[in-house]
Simulated scan of single mutants.
Amino acid sequence: MIYVVEYQKWGLPHAHFLVILKPNSKIRCPADFDKFVSAEIPSLASPHLRKIVLQHMMHGPCAQLNPDCACMKRRGNEGHCKYGYPKKFADKTTNSSDGESVCIRRVNMDNRSVIPYNLYLSSLFDCHLNVEVCSTIMAVKYLYKYVYKGHDRISFNVVQDGSTAIVDEIQEYQAGRWVSPCEAAWRIFGFDLLEMSPSVLPLQIHLTNLQTIQVIPHENLDEIISNDKRSRTQLT
C-alpha cells in the first residue's frame, strides 16, 4: 500500500493510493470488475446513492450538446472529448483489445427517465473517487509514475515591457513554488504526506571491499581501514 498526499492549485488536499492485493484477492476478469466498479447510475431503489452519483460523478454535457466544454478544447483534437465521452452502451463488462476494461452500461428506463442518455458517468472527470483496475504493465507503470510526479512545475522569467535586450535565460531563471495555507498548516503540524507499507529501502550494491567510504580530511587512513565499523555497509 502506498499513498501520497498532494495539494491542488486551489489548496485542497487529495491522496493518491496504490493498493496491491494478495494473489487470491486480485481482480482478474470482467466478472470481478463488476464486484468493485460500477459505471451505471444507481437505481431508484437507492435514492440517496443515486442523488450523490448524479450530483458529483457525472461528466458533461459535451460533444454536440456543448462544443464549448473544457474537455473539447484539446489542441490538435478539437471537437472530440479528451476523456472519450460519450461512452458507448454495453450489455456486459468486457476487456478491450488494448487491455482496458469496458464497463457495463445498460440502456434501461431507470437511467433514461431522469437524465438524457448522452450524460455519462465519469471515472476521470469531476468526481471524488477514481478507482482503476490495472490489467496491463503500462497501466501499472503509469500509476507509479503519477503518484511520484511531485508538484506542478513551470519555467518562467520576468522581463520589462517593451524590452528588446537579449534574454539571458541563465541569469533570469526563476524557481518558485506555491504553498497554500492548507498545505502550510499540514506541514507545520507535521502530518504525514506519504506512507509506504512495507517500507522499501535502497541498498548500496558493491563488490567485496569495494564499498564507498566517506573520509574527513583530518582523519588517519590507517585508523579508518582498521576500524571494523567503517567497513560495514547496508549490504554486508
Rank of each mutant, 00 (worst) to 15 (best):
A165E: 04
H16M: 00
V114T: 11
V158I: 13
S113V: 00
F36N: 01
A165W: 07
R232S: 02
R50K: 02
K145L: 13
S135N: 15
E169T: 13
L221E: 14
G162N: 12
M196T: 11
I188W: 09
A15M: 00
D98E: 08
S38G: 14
S123P: 11
S197R: 12
S123G: 14
I52D: 12
L210C: 14
N209Q: 10
W186Q: 07
V140C: 04
N157A: 07
L18C: 01
E40W: 02
K73W: 00
I115E: 11
E183C: 00
C29M: 13
V4S: 15
D168A: 14
N227T: 10
I225E: 05
H128N: 15
D192C: 05
H48E: 14
D68H: 10
N108G: 05
Q234P: 07
S123D: 09
D161C: 15
S226K: 11
D98M: 05
C81W: 01
V159N: 08
M109W: 12
E219N: 06
P61W: 02
A45G: 01
P202W: 12
L194M: 14
F89L: 01
P47K: 00
W186A: 03
K92A: 12
N220A: 11
R187E: 09
V102I: 15
L203P: 06
Y148L: 12
L65G: 06
K145Y: 13
V4A: 13
Q204R: 10
R28K: 11
P198Y: 01
A139T: 11
I137C: 09
D126Y: 09
Q174L: 06
P86H: 01
W186P: 03
S163A: 03
Q160F: 07
P86Y: 04
C62N: 04
W10D: 14
T93C: 12
S135M: 10
Q234D: 15
W10E: 10
I170F: 12
F156V: 08
R74C: 09
E169A: 08
A90M: 05
N111S: 05
